[in-house]
């Protein structure tokens, strides 16, 4: 497999009056083209900082991130749908295109196509407060896909949803990623989500985070069915034990 990007000796510190907080200490990781990689760790261990740095929202303190291609479009999905309540569903969906000044007719049609695929066509001119949590999350997904990212960063993207919509939306997301072969880095504290969706699971230690273990997951392409298998339970237990040791 081809490398998509290499993270080398990455470090991230936050500075407060009380002192320096090391969120990430010397993290080295290669991400491969087309894989879905999950990063799990206890809360506050710096997983989200990692995505923030990759998405150019936060500055890194040290180390380097090298992309294989020069031009790389990053799609970032955050903890909640972050839809703008004063914009319609369609306007929300094209927000990224608008800001990136890529609002071509072709791209607009692509967004309309996506809305149709997710049965949101009839809601295009409605406002977010008229939609259910799962539907809103799908709009957020469409907004992310509209800019045609080649690297997808998911920061606990389903954590605001109830269990039912969570499974449904993550199933949707998984199918899209698989179909379009977008390289995906997902941060989560839900081990089940990580195991059922990914090719690899990286377990981080608590702050300052280091890689504790990397698991190659070989399960089927059906995340909901995956949850029923014995292997799922095995992975789940191993990762859980990894995290548990760290809680102390």
């Amino acid at each position: 497999m081809n490398k998509k990007l290499s993270i080398k000796n990455l470090g991230k510190s936050y500075y407060t009056k009380q002192g320096e907080i090391k969120a990430i200490d010397d993290l080295t990781l290669d991400i491969y083209e087309g894989e879905i990689i999950s990063i799990v760790g206890t809360s506050g261990c710096g997983k989200s900082s990692l995505l923030g740095i990759l998405a150019n929202i936060e500055e890194k303190t040290k180390g380097s991130i090298e992309f294989q291609e020069k031009e790389s479009t990053i799609g970032y999905m955050l903890q909640n749908d972050a839809l703008f309540p004063w914009l319609t569903i369609y306007e929300n969906a094209i927000l990224g295109l608008k800001i990136k000044k890529k609002l071509t007719k072709e791209n607009c049609n692509y967004v309309k196509e996506l809305l149709k695929t997710y049965h949101l066509e009839e809601f295009a001119n409605k406002y977010p407060n008229e939609l259910s949590g799962g539907m809103k999350q799908r709009v957020a997904l469409i907004r992310t896909l509209a800019i045609k990212p080649d690297l997808l960063l998911l920061d606990e993207p389903f954590s605001a949803l109830d269990y039912q919509s969570r499974l449904a939306v993550s199933d949707d997301v998984f199918k899209i990623i698989k179909k379009s072969k977008i390289t995906t880095i997902m941060v989560t504290h839900d081990i089940g989500e990580a195991v059922s969706l990914s090719n690899r699971v990286v377990v981080l230690s608590k702050r300052p985070c280091k890689i504790k273990n990397i698991y190659e997951i070989s399960l089927s392409d059906d995340p909901i069915a995956n949850r029923q298998t014995q292997e799922f339970n095995n992975y789940y237990n191993m990762i859980w034990r990894d995290l548990d040791v760290n809680i102390e």
């Binding site: 990053i74 799609g75 970032y76 955050l78 909640n80 972050a82 703008f84 927000l95 800001i99 990136k100």
Partner: peptide, 14 residues
């Protein structure tokens, strides 16, 4: 202003 929304726009290069 919601910091998550700010981060979202920043990720679009705003």
């Amino acid at each position: 202003t919601d910091i998550i929304k700010i981060n979202l726009l920043k990720s679009f290069g705003a």
